[in-house]
């Protein structure tokens, strides 16, 4: 019952959160020098013409009126039209959402699987050479600038070795070929997951070490259980609980990282759409992509909180 009440309250915080985020963005776009009209109104345009344009676009209205109009349309799924091309923003986003989700979820899953395995090995062999090597590699990983790692991967695997394609999402005429599709995914996923793997490994290791020191683990050993059973059946499951939080926090960095990865590998996703919209000052698209991304981040953190409730019965949210 307490859980339900918590969940309802938690769900209720999402709309104000999204309104707040969109307001921050809206103000940033509209109060910045130049503002949204700079897309249409050239400096040498005569004042009458400029005034007409403003009126037809609704830019002569006060800020709160414009924001309210934007908000009421977004609620029914209308994010307005792209200024360059006149395509509905919702359409542009839906066309690219799949590519970004494929890239980010694949990276996240791979990062989690690798870090759990490596982190546990590291913790079980604490202070061994293997542990030190893993820790060093984790530091290297988490310090990578995603964009540089991407470029270096292209240099090594595409330019020098010619093993993997340097850009795009599929080869023309081979869209249905799974192996070909995977070959396009490999480098972007490595570039995107490396940083997270570095961070996760250290976290899993620390959390595993905490659990291995607990009394119940000692009891399990004392009653003669095999080390494997102690590690995997008794300790790992509890060690993974705090790891869930880190995964939730990674959602944000994953989205930011995806922007760079999509730019470098010409991956046709939301990040690329957003960057190009920013370059073109296509503000309906900028607002639209940002709201979708904010929604993604907020919903992920909600899911993590819910997962937490079920994974750890000791937790009581007030």
């Amino acid at each position: 019952m307490a859980h339900q009440a918590y969940l309802i309250r938690r769900l209720l915080t999402i709309p104000p959160m999204l309104v707040g985020i969109s307001l921050v963005l809206f103000l940033a776009i509209n109060l910045a020098p130049g503002g949204p009209e700079s897309f249409f109104i050239a400096e040498d345009m005569n004042t009458q013409m400029a005034e007409q344009l403003r009126e037809s676009l609704g830019l002569n209205q006060p800020l709160h009126v414009r924001y309210w109009r934007w908000l009421t349309r977004v609620v029914v799924g209308d994010l307005g039209f792209s200024l360059s091309g006149g395509i509905p923003t919702t359409q542009l986003i839906l066309d690219r959402l799949g590519a970004t989700l494929l890239l980010t979820t694949t990276s996240l899953v791979i990062a989690v699987v690798i870090s759990v395995i490596v982190g546990v090995i590291s913790a079980v062999h604490q202070y061994s050479t293997l542990d030190r090597v893993i820790s060093a590699l984790a530091y290297f990983g988490m310090s990578f600038p995603t964009f540089w790692l991407g470029i270096m991967l292209i240099l090594l695997f595409s330019v020098t070795l010619r093993w993997l394609p340097p850009s795009g999402m599929s080869e023309f005429g081979k869209e249905g070929d799974l192996l070909s599709r995977i070959s396009f995914l490999v480098l972007p996923v490595i570039a995107l997951s490396a940083v997270d793997i570095g961070g996760f490994v250290r976290f899993v290791r620390a959390s595993m070490l905490d659990v291995l020191r607990m009394d119940y683990v000692r009891t399990a050993r004392a009653k003669g259980l095999a080390e494997k059973v102690v590690v995997y059946r008794h300790s790992l499951r509890n060690a993974l609980i705090p790891t869930v939080t880190v995964i939730g926090m990674a959602a944000r960095s994953l989205v930011a990282g995806a922007v760079f990865v999509e730019m470098i590998f010409a991956w046709p996703g939301l990040g690329r759409l957003a960057v190009n919209a920013v370059y073109r000052r296509d503000y309906p698209v900028v607002m639209g992509v940002n709201i979708v991304i904010a929604l993604f981040v907020v919903v992920t953190s909600l899911i993590v909180d819910i997962l937490y409730l079920y994974l750890d019965p000791r937790i009581e949210y007030e």
Partner: peptide
């Protein structure tokens, strides 16, 4: 914390 920071920065820099 929920604002997609990178995007806000990009927008503001592009405008200012």
């Amino acid at each position: 914390l929920a604002v997609p920071g990178l995007f806000v920065i990009m927008v503001i820099v592009a405008l200012v």
